[in-house]
């Protein structure tokens, strides 16, 4: 599933995953949730790095 999300599957494997997801509701939900998870991670990467809290610098 991860390789499908990363578009790293060969066409035959990609079709096999898609076929399976179509007939297996559990895996369809798994794929959807995994996709949401990876989407969240990518958004984290797009966010500017947080400033360190004030008052916690080197003493």
């Amino acid at each position: 599933m991860s390789e499908h999300l990363d578009d790293e599957l060969d066409p035959e494997s990609r079709r096999a995953v898609e076929r399976h997801i179509r007939w297996c509701p559990n895996c369809e939900r798994m794929f959807q949730n995994l996709s949401r998870t990876v989407g969240g991670l990518r958004r984290l990467g797009d966010m500017p790095a947080e400033e360190p809290p004030t008052g916690t610098g080197p003493k």
């Binding site: 559990n26 939900r29 949401r36 969240g40 991670l41 984290l44």
Partner: peptide, 25 residues
């Protein structure tokens, strides 16, 4: 158990919210 929870029914905004991203982090 055997059943994977369905997150998909939630609106997209949930997955773009700061709260969700904090949970991811």
């Amino acid at each position: 158990g055997e059943r994977v929870p369905d997150w998909g029914a939630r609106p997209d905004e949930v997955f773009e919210s700061r709260e969700f991203l904090t949970a991811v982090a």
